[in-house]
Amino acid sequence: MLLPKTEKRANGEAFDAMSPAKAIDAFVNAQQAAAGAASAIPKEIDAGADAMAQAVRDGKSLIYVAAGSSGLMALADACELCGTFGISGDIVQIHMAGGVPTTGYMPGNTEDETDKAESIGRTTSKGDVALILSASGTTPYAVAAARSIKASGGTVIGIANNPSTELLNLADIKVCLETPPEIIAGSTRLGGATAQKVALNLMSSLMGVKLGHVYQGLMVNLVADNAKLVQRAAAIVSQIAKVSGQDARDALEQTSGNTKAAILVAAGASLDAAQAALRSNDGHLGPCIATLKPTKPKKSN
């Protein structure tokens, strides 16, 4: 039987037969090769980010669907959207076969539960975007969800590590991450999952850029809901507006923690003018800074 690449063993000496130093070197090299898979498909990655950004603009849902190790990668990316980019948790859905595990056990049979996957489509509508992951590209749960969501008018971003597979054939945006055979044959929690995490991080980060939530490499739409993040938000305001830390904290208090608005207020704009500028520029900070005239003298460090 011809095995898909994700089921083959990597060429060369078996991982378990190597010395520890050689095994570590081989493992790191394999992970680096897997991580680079996304760089071969920049157009597909960007198309996925575009679709995600449009869904957020329209108030539609971002739906993450996967089983097993792919589900863990999906879970990690989905759960970081709110804190990093200020994406409303109300529009992010996570569907992991068997549910999110609360112990170290993830049952394997749940990836065959196509009826539960099909039910996802019943709550999906046109404009929703689903990121559906399957290393093999043939996982029944993932494939059934893709069919169901497409039938309901949703857009499917299919992410798989084998080309020309059922999931990718169904997908509107085909993200094929052609990773080498695993150093432990079939253990796609290694190279396959690494490539999936890179692709998800790329798409969601580019989405943040397209939505104006990243400015000069800084997270200007973060949700500052703990002491560390309040400090980070103040540092961002201080750095961009070129004001003291205290002025940055005062601006954040005035804007109820809205980092973008706080940057403009700290730079000398009124709160009303800052909010209006952000609305007229779709939340993109650069045009606001370029055009907004301060209504009061800006304090310096």
Score class of each variant (00 low, 15 high):
Val243Arg: 03
Ile236Thr: 14
Arg249Thr: 08
Gln216Thr: 01
Ala241His: 02
Gln231Val: 14
Leu229Ser: 09
Gln246Thr: 04
Ile236Leu: 12
Lys242Gly: 07
Asn226Thr: 11
Gly245Ala: 13
Ala262Leu: 14
Lys228Tyr: 12
Arg249Asp: 08
Met219Trp: 04
Ser244Gly: 15
Ser238Gly: 14
Asn226Asp: 12
Ser238Tyr: 00
Ala251Phe: 04
Ser205Pro: 01
Val220Arg: 06
Gly257Met: 04
Asn258Trp: 07
Gly245Ser: 14
Ala234Cys: 13
Leu218Val: 03
Met207Ser: 10
Ala261Asn: 07
Val230Trp: 07
Ala248Ile: 04
Asn221Ile: 04
Asp250Glu: 10
Arg249Cys: 04
Gly257Leu: 08
Val243Gly: 07
Gly217Gln: 12
Val237Leu: 06
Asp225Met: 06
Gly212Val: 10
Ala233Gln: 05
Gln239Thr: 14
Gly212Gln: 15
Asn221Phe: 01
Asp247Leu: 05
Leu264Gly: 01
Val237Gln: 09
Ala224Tyr: 10
Ser244Cys: 07
Gln246Ala: 13
Leu264Ile: 08
Thr259Ile: 14
Lys210Phe: 07
Gly208Asn: 08
Gly208Ala: 14
His213Val: 00
Arg232Asn: 11
Leu229Arg: 11
Glu253Gln: 03
Asn258Met: 11
Ala261Ile: 12
Ser256Thr: 06
Ser244Tyr: 01
Ile236Ala: 11
Tyr215Met: 04
His213Gly: 07
Ile263Met: 01
Lys260His: 04
Ser256His: 09
Ile240Lys: 06
Lys242His: 09
Gly208Tyr: 05
Ala235Gly: 11
Val209Phe: 07
Leu229Ile: 12
Met207Leu: 10
Val223Tyr: 03
Lys242Ser: 13
